[in-house]
Design a protein around this nucleic acid. Structure first.
Lengths: 202, 202
DNA sequence: GTCTATAAGAGGATAGAC
DNA sequence: GTCTATCCTCTTATAGAC
């Protein structure tokens, strides 16, 4: 773990963030010490402070960057078309993105309470912007009559919670592939807003 | 906050657990100190160790008792009948129970990673038993043809995640009552397993 | 840019008085 | 049953050598 003195500015910064991400996701922000992060990177604890003003900024950066990347990625591959196509695009994107970044997802949902007030507000604003992407699709679909959504906001929260939950149980070693899972969640999502439902048992 | 010396065995124990529950839910297990818990109860830190061998046992007890209560409560009011009735019973029970105990729910989902290996296994086993309650309903309903469930296990995880998520956003001061919310979630749940869906857009 | 050393304090847990 | 006092370890963060 020990290493010789030397300059590694270009790689150490990202390595610190990667180590912090992994450790925060595994053990939780409050349970991880700066020494653990440093040890994982292969530097002494003091060296971390060349790259981050403090531990809080490390957490905030990870969460902010994750939310910004999420919004940018969705903006880049958002599907245009009728509400069904847009909903399918969002659902598959969300499941895939979350399966690909389990650690980022985990800390972004679990460590909100460890953010300082201002940092919390900033991350919450980003998260709300993302949720609005789905809410707009649901509202549009309800307006033109292809979806039946009893309450747009609750449906948004419900669907996002359902989809995000995939990262709590999915393992690549399991019986289902990522693409299987994407399809299954899309199937449940489309059913959950289906209009063809007025004749079900009360 | 200071208090006089005296005996309060019957009430101090529960008060310690209540304070720990509240603080763990608010700030996270690792971020809460024994001194904070003691201060909330109105005793000195040393006095806590009359009631718990250590901090870990405090967390484990809260989680174990919550899961046991959840299972008992469901056993007591589980609905018998056809799969639709059973599913509605489970859905409404789950939403109501989780709305009534936001702190217990929060720590039971967030603090799993702070449990020691054995404690983790014990809580996980209880959680699995609870999830099986829903999975059995879905499997029975699929078998007799009233539900269409592409994958029973994924549907179980998806529905539980969707329903449990209610506690992340619901506030009693909001525009919806608890009973509204229960109904909306039931509506989404029943749609999500509806059979009447083979003719939707691909 | 990284190291060593250290400041200043908070953490969990225990001992023994009352 | 609770208090006070304390042990010992670990914490975040900084200072200054290299």
């Amino acid at each position: 773990m020990a290493r010789k003195t030397g300059s590694h500015a270009e790689i150490t910064g990202p390595r610190i963030r990667a180590a912090a991400l992994r450790l925060f996701a595994r053990h939780g922000y409050a349970a991880v010490s700066m020494r653990q992060i440093a040890s994982e990177v292969g530097v002494q604890a003091g060296a971390l402070y060349t790259y981050t003003p403090d531990k809080q900024a490390l957490l905030f950066d990870l969460m902010r960057v994750h939310m910004e990347n999420l919004l940018e990625s969705w903006a880049a591959e958002a599907v245009f078309g009728d509400p069904w196509e847009r909903l399918e695009g969002f659902t598959r994107f969300h499941v895939r993105y979350h399966l690909d970044r389990p650690d980022e997802v985990f800390i972004s949902y679990m460590e909100l309470r460890n953010l300082d007030t201002d940092n919390f507000r900033a991350v919450e604003a980003l998260r709300r912007r993302y949720e609005m992407q789905l809410q707009d699709i649901l509202a549009d679909g309800a307006k033109v009559g292809c979806f039946t959504v009893p309450d747009t906001k609750v449906a948004t929260m419900g669907i996002i919670a359902m989809l995000t939950g995939v990262s709590t149980w999915f393992r690549d070693t399991g019986r289902l592939s990522r693409s299987d899972v994407e399809g299954i969640y899309w199937d449940m999502t489309r059913r959950s807003v289906s209009s063809r439902f007025t004749d079900l048992p009360a």
